Every structure is written in C-alpha cells, then in structure tokens.
Simulated scan of single mutants.
Amino acid sequence: MRIDSHQHFWIYNEQDYGWMSGQHKAIQTDFLPEHLKPLLLQNGFDGSIAVQARQSLQETEWLLSLAERYSEIKGVVGWVDLCSPEIDRQLEQYGNHPLLKGVRHVVHDEPDDRFLLREDFRNGIASLEKYGLTYDLLLFPKHLPYAAELAGQFPKQPFVLDHIAKPDIANKGLEPWAQDLARLAAYPNVYCKLSGMVTEAEWGNWKEEDFAIYLDTVFQCFGAERLMIGSDWPVCTLSGTYEQTITIVKNYLKDFSEEDRSLVLGGNCIRFYGISS
C-alpha cells in the first residue's frame, strides 16, 4: 500500500480553528473524507493517516468515527491530555480502539520551549507504551534538542517528527536545524514525515529545487528506512495543490531503488503505525 502519512479533516468554525485567520483564510471551509478520496486516488495512494487538528477528546472521537466509516482512513493520530492526572482513564477509553494509532500535542504553540521535558508530559508519554500508541512530534527547530532528550529517555516509545520540524525554507535557513535534526535522528525510535514543507517556503512561489537541500539533509539523518511521505492536506493548499505537494517527494525519489521508494511511499508508515489493511 501507498499511504499519505499526514492529513487533516475539519468542519470549520471560528471557535475551534482560531488559528485560521489572516493569511490562512483560504482554508476556512470544510475538508472531509469525500474531498480527500479523489486526491488520494489520482495520486496513487491507497489511504491516509488522519491527524488531529483540535486539542480535545471530541476531536479524537470524531476522527475515529470517520475512520470507522471510510476505509481509506487507515489510522488516526488523535489527542489526549498527556499532562492530565486522568491520562490513564482517557487512554483506557480510547487506547484500545484498533484505528487509534497514536496521539499528538501542538507543542510548538506552548509558551514553554521545554514543554516536552515537563514531568507531567513525560508521565503521559510513559503511559502510551501499554496501549502500543505512537507519538507525533509537532515542533519548531528550537524544540529539536528537547525532543532528542525526550527520545533518549523513552527508547521503547515510537516517535515521528512532523513536517521535518518546519525549517525556514523561505529564507534558506539550514542551521542549527540540520545539526539538531541529526541529534534527534540518532535515536532509532524516531521517524520523520516528509510533509509540511510547501508552507514553510514562500507560499505559491517556490520551485522543487528549493527543497533539495532539506530533503538531502533529512535522508542523510534518517535514511529511507525511517521516512514517510505526507501531504499535510488541506494546509498544504495554502501554498500548492495536493499533487504539487506530493510530487516534490516523488520526484526526489526517482533515483532511489524501488525498495527505498516503496518504504518512503508507504512501507514505513505501515510499519510505524501498525496498519494491517
């Protein structure tokens, strides 16, 4: 199977999606499975991973309900309150659902740069192993050193870095992102999603070669065995179409072996999230 490892659904309302203001106005509308399905088919994907866009238990329930109805949703990365003393109860409620593959917290919006190392957050991470749940790291480059420390503290916990940690592609910024990325990638329990790049470039005014140095760096750090393609749809549409976004990685892979292409385009996602069909 070929899997888009990272996309979102929502029914837009201002209260839940306040971040969609100003330049994000173009995505102030509903994006649902029936909108994504033709894009998956047109681009050769068998399915996708639906990732939380709201920090609420209702979001997790809603995404799981969609996954139960639409077979192309191969798994859900939901949200639970990892910092809550009620985390075990929340995980008992949702953790055994076969389509809940992992959880995520919007760490890059937290005022504390060291949020990942807070004791209550780490207690939440420690609870995930019992349910076989992965954790998606949503970070800015400044958070990478803390992510590396976290990954080292939980060597059995599978982590995946979203959006290659959002380097400053628009201004060709490379360091200290590249050096800190290598530190995180040194931990074998950490994977990385080739997603979210077009919205870190100059919106609608980028060329595929703008991403080459970033893809070179990520492949040097993680190797083809721990990377997975992702669209970040519909956020990607702020800067390019679904096809344009996905084609950046597909074209980059043209000179790779068939085995490596198969891993990045689906195999690694299937293994990481434990997708069976």
Rank of each mutant, 00 (worst) to 15 (best):
R2E: 08
D4G: 08
Q7K: 04
F9E: 04
I11Q: 11
I11C: 10
Y12W: 08
G18S: 14
W19Y: 10
M20H: 02
Q23T: 10
H24C: 11
T29C: 11
T29K: 14
F31T: 11
L32V: 09
Q42Y: 02
Q42T: 07
N43E: 06
G44Y: 00
S48Y: 02
I49Y: 04
A53E: 00
R54Q: 13
R54D: 10
S56A: 14
T60C: 06
W62R: 08
W62Y: 11
W62M: 02
W62D: 04
L63T: 12
L64C: 06
L64T: 10
S65L: 01
E68F: 03
R69H: 12
R69D: 13
Y70G: 13
K74V: 07
G75N: 04
V76E: 01
W79P: 03
L82Y: 04
L82A: 08
P85E: 14
E86I: 02
E86T: 00
I87E: 06
I87S: 02
R89K: 14
R89Q: 14
Q90C: 06
Q90T: 07
L91R: 00
Q93M: 09
G95I: 10
G95L: 06
G95P: 04
N96Q: 14
N96C: 05
L99C: 00
L99Y: 03
L99H: 09
L100Q: 01
V103W: 03
R104D: 07
L117S: 12
R118G: 12
E119P: 06
N123H: 12
S127N: 07
E129G: 07
T134F: 02
Y135T: 00
F140W: 14
H143Y: 13
L144G: 06
P145D: 07
A147T: 06
A147P: 08
A147V: 09
A148E: 04
E149S: 08
E149V: 12
L150I: 07
A151W: 05
G152I: 02
K156I: 07
K156Y: 08
D162S: 14
I164R: 05
I164H: 05
D168E: 11
D168S: 13
D168F: 10
D168I: 02
I169C: 08
A170H: 07
N171M: 10
L174C: 09
E175G: 03
A178R: 12
A178Y: 00
Q179I: 13
R183I: 15
R183W: 03
L184M: 05
L184A: 03
A185K: 03
Y187H: 15
P188M: 01
N189E: 05
V190C: 13
V190N: 09
Y191F: 15
S195E: 09
G196S: 05
G196H: 04
G196A: 05
M197W: 03
W203V: 01
N205D: 11
F211P: 10
I213P: 04
I213Q: 15
T217A: 15
T217Y: 01
Q220G: 06
A224D: 12
G230D: 09
G230K: 04
G230L: 06
P234L: 00
V235P: 03
C236I: 05
T237Q: 13
T245I: 02
V249Q: 07
Y252N: 13
L253E: 07
K254C: 11
K254R: 14
K254E: 15
F256Q: 11
S257Q: 08
E258G: 01
E259A: 15
L263S: 09
V264C: 12
G266L: 02
G267Q: 05
I270L: 06
I270K: 14
R271Y: 01
G274H: 05
S276Q: 14
S277T: 12
S277V: 11
